[in-house]
Design a protein around this nucleic acid. Structure first.
Lengths: 89, 89
DNA sequence: CAGGAGCGCTACTGTATCAGTAGCGCTCGG
DNA sequence: CCGAGCGCTACTGATACAGTAGCGCTCCTG
């Protein structure tokens, strides 16, 4: 499962999550992810770009159509997480 | 997003994925995950148990009802991954 | 009862990954 | 010229992971 390997890295899902809020600059993205280290952010962005999930446009980094599809699936997990958080108090 | 932090660890989603195939022993689970190290597997299992996603029954480790809910969401990602793999050849 | 097999799990050592900080080269506007 | 912002890189130290060996336990079998 190559996708689970890709997403199973520090901040991989978090970056996709933030990128849904439209084009963001490198530093904006960094700030939204709790001031994560730029070296790691750059590594994650390279991975997302080579796998066709995100790309750098004129207005900053954004999800590709393919990445937007994946975000919808992550969004389901995000909403389920609330239900899950209630169950385990 | 605490759930993304939990799932964003090595083999976390892979373990859940394998656990859907019914109760598995520690060593069976280890073998299915490419002979992952037992120390790490044990750490992941502790996390899944304290978060109510999996538990150890009489016949081995298995997903809780809550964990089964999460698996269905991961299954959607798994099927989408095939579509994704075709797009990026 | 001795011995083997399986269980869940722990303890190590080396390696890879991540956190945190400083700063590069570049472009653009004043 | 200069300051600000951009994407990105290069370090150092801490943390997580891979890989291996083996513990204590239970069950079964000879």
């Amino acid at each position: 499962m190559a996708l689970f390997d890709l997403l199973g890295r520090a901040w991989a899902m978090g970056v996709i999550w933030q990128l849904d809020d439209g084009p963001l600059s490198f530093r904006q993205l960094q700030a939204r992810c709790g001031d994560m280290s730029p070296s790691l952010l750059n590594r994650r962005l390279k991975e997302l770009r080579t796998t066709g999930l995100a790309d750098l446009g004129d207005e900053g980094f954004a999800l590709t159509p393919l990445g937007a599809e994946l975000f919808e699936l992550l969004e389901h997990i995000g909403t389920w997480a609330k239900h899950w958080a209630d169950e385990i108090q």
